[in-house]
Design a protein around this nucleic acid. Sequence first.
DNA 1: ATCCAGGCTCCTG
DNA 2: CAGGAGCATGGA
Length: 310
Amino acid sequence: MTTGEGQATRRLARGIRPTGVLNFPLALTYVNSWTASTLERIDLVAGTWQRALMLDGHDLLITVGPSTTPDALILEIAGPHVSPDLLDRAEREVRRIFALDTDPAEFAALAWADDILRPIVTPYEGMRPIVVADLYESLVWAILGQQINVGFARRLKDRLVETSGHELVVDDVRYPLLPRPEVVAALDPAVLLGQQFSRQKTAYVIGVSEEIASGRLDLHELATLPDDEAIDELIRLRGVGRWTAEYVLMRGMGRADVIPAGDVSLQLLIGTAATGARVREPELRAIAERWRPWRSWATFFVWMSRQFGA
DNA sequence: ATCCAGGCTCCTG
DNA sequence: CAGGAGCATGGA
């Protein structure tokens, strides 16, 4: 399915200003190298981030790039339907994705005083946790990433987009989008099984999509709940355990104080730094207490340091 | 080959 | 209710 083809592209733009110090080029470098970034287009030379996103029922191309005004960014939306309201909506999304409303100074102070975080965080001044642009996408990615290597998970995500996704065309450039939940919900399991999805992942992804498509799970409402209630709501889904729920809160919703402590890589990285060996989940939660109310930020930087091989 | 990877469900004892 | 097997696939 394609939207935008043959229709006039309209555009709207405005400048946006982050709170506190922002290193946007570093954020782009991160997104560019993150395994699950299948839907973003990053231009490191121009310093721009682009992706298609459905907002309020309209597929939009969102572009964020540098401004001539110091410490500011330019946000542009493009597509067959744009409006000032959609520009407002896009700005809210971009502020959430790049954590523009959070001054990183408070976390930086905490990290500077912490023996584990200091060496990890210090090289990345102005870096903030990047949120997956679409909550549904973060949920699907978390399920795909369960217990398999992330390279393979990436391949599964690519196939989901190729076979069932759709795209927005702007200026003859095709911008892919993840299939809508209702499309995945209606999918024949054989399609996914034929693409190396395991029986479990097939059932989980289709099942979660059914919950959303039917309205039994309302992602907008989920986003308004306190952390613990949102986690409980997610865990009732088949295929979603505590790790996945916490991952979604952190990476999909931008909650600042969640740590997926069941994560083996965190148990290894943080455990080794703290005690010299891998720790298990309860001990990792105990260690992470000192990072309240910034446990997601701490987690993000630990993962990022591994990704960048620092 | 063997182990394990950004886990979850289901079934034991 | 804690503990462990089974799941499916690919990379080290």
